[in-house]
Structure formats: structure tokens, C-alpha cells
Simulated assay, not measured.
Amino acid sequence: MMLEYTILWLDGNSSDPMSSFRAKLGNAQTFTNVNDCIEYIKSHSKELIYLIVSGSLAKEIIPIIYESSNIIEIFLFCGSVSAYAEWAMDYCDKMMIFDHGDDLLERLWNDLQNKLREHAKICLKLAEEHKQRALQFKKPCG
């Protein structure tokens, strides 16, 4: 029961190696093209995906991928939250809007931490159940 989360960043500047946000984000799959990102999401239906998308590309991709079951959360990263607030109301179940990279990253890492801790609890419970089952078959030597 492997649990893995994938972080995708769709932004015209995501491939810029000098981006301070890129450096802070670390190991994420980057896209500069909406169609390439959509194709990735559709072809990796078993991956649990966090999508970071620039404001300039959000209105193009979000209506298409919003209902995808593998999209856990969408982080819209833009220059002005108020510019997207009204439009975003249709997507508020899975989407949050940020105008500061550090705020976005704090939320992303905290959300991932919580999801992984929940999964760890489930794994520990299953491990204990298997241990108890194994003990049923333990026989003394001799």
C-alpha cells in the first residue's frame, strides 16, 4: 500500500532555474504548457496530485481538470487574490488562492505532512493487526 503524492507546477516561468520559488519548491514536475499538464494528469490517474498553477493559466486548466479524482488540491498562485476571488467560487472545494509563495508552500507542506501522518496511522494499525494474526500461529518450541 504505497502512498505517493506528486506536485505539479504549471506556470510559464516554471522551468526558470533561477526562480526562487522553484528552488523552495524542490522536486516538482514542472509544465509551461497547459495541454502537457492536462495530459500528465489524465495519464497518471493513480497518482495523488497537488497542482500549483499560475493565475494566467488557471482559467484555462482548472475547469478541465477540476473533477479529476487524482487532484487532491489546487493552489492558484497569482499577483492578486481579489482578481480571482469571484471566478474561484465555483472551485473552492479543491482550490485555494495565494499571492505569496511562502504562504502557498507553508500550506502545501502542512497539508502533505497531515496526509502522510494519516496514512502512517493506518499503516501502523494494519501492522498491529497482522502482528496479532501472526501471534495466533506462534507455537512453543519443544
Rank of each mutant, 00 (worst) to 15 (best):
G142V: 13
R22P: 09
L104W: 03
I61W: 07
N33H: 00
K42R: 09
L124F: 12
Y50R: 07
I97H: 06
N70R: 07
K131P: 01
L126T: 01
I7P: 02
S45T: 06
I122T: 04
K24G: 05
A23M: 14
E106R: 05
E86T: 10
L10M: 10
L126R: 06
A127P: 02
I122M: 13
N114I: 11
S54Y: 00
E128V: 09
F31A: 10
L126C: 14
D93H: 13
K138R: 15
Q136M: 13
A28Q: 05
I62R: 07
E60V: 10
Y66R: 09
I65P: 05
F77I: 10
L48M: 14
L25P: 02
C123F: 07
G26S: 04
M95K: 06
Y40G: 01
E39I: 15
D11P: 08
S19D: 03
L3S: 03
T6G: 04
S69R: 12
C37T: 04
S19T: 01
G142T: 02
L105N: 09
Y91Q: 13
V34R: 03
Q29Y: 09
E60G: 10
Y5T: 08
M96D: 07
I65A: 04
Q136S: 15
M95F: 04
Y91H: 12
I41E: 00
R117V: 11
M1L: 08
L10Q: 06
H119L: 13
N114Y: 12
C141G: 08
A127Q: 09
I38V: 06
I71W: 00
